[in-house]
């Protein structure tokens, strides 16, 4: 029975890894393809936001979170909205299984992170920081002085 328990645990781990690998594969496939990023300006990070007018959590939670992030970054961040249900080819290409879904895009247009479901402002800010994009308003004033 212990062998079977170990086998079950191994299969659960493999299943989880396959799930993660799927996300990684989607990201790798998208690198350089630029699907849906026609409005993207190189040199600025972006958040690619899959939404729909009928998506309740998008309006209630994701939109305000993105507004918070946008307020911190100003014009240093691009938020590209995609109406998911009107663009099924994009939704399929980006492997979007639920709304809202947000992708973090770096300054070279490469997808670097994904959030399936609502991502709150702190998480989005952390993800932007992780790709080397610090919000200017998060920097301490004396730190700004020392940088200038």
């Amino acid at each position: 029975m212990l062998e079977r328990l170990a086998a079950a645990l191994a299969l659960i781990v493999v299943g989880y890894l396959v799930y993660r690998l799927y996300g990684w594969f989607i990201m790798r496939r998208l690198v350089g393809a630029g699907m849906g990023l026609e409005g993207y300006t190189p040199g600025k990070p972006a958040i690619l936001y899959f939404t729909d007018p009928g998506c309740a959590p998008c309006h209630a939670l994701q939109d305000p979170a993105l507004e918070q992030v946008a307020a911190q970054f100003g014009d240093r961040l691009q938020i590209i909205k995609v109406q998911a249900l009107e663009n099924p080819h994009l939704t399929d290409a980006w492997g979007v299984l639920s709304l809202p879904t947000t992708f973090i895009i770096d300054t070279r247009g490469r997808p670097r992170g994904v959030n399936h479901g609502v991502a709150r402002a702190p998480r989005l800010l952390d993800q932007l920081r992780a790709i080397g994009e610090a919000s200017p308003r998060l920097v301490e004033p004396d730190r700004v002085d020392s940088l200038s």
Partner: peptide, 15 residues
């Protein structure tokens, strides 16, 4: 599918 929901996605509670 219900409005605003990707086929197969669990719908959310309305506002």
């Amino acid at each position: 599918p219900p409005p605003g929901v990707i086929p197969g996605q669990r719908p959310s509670r309305p506002d």
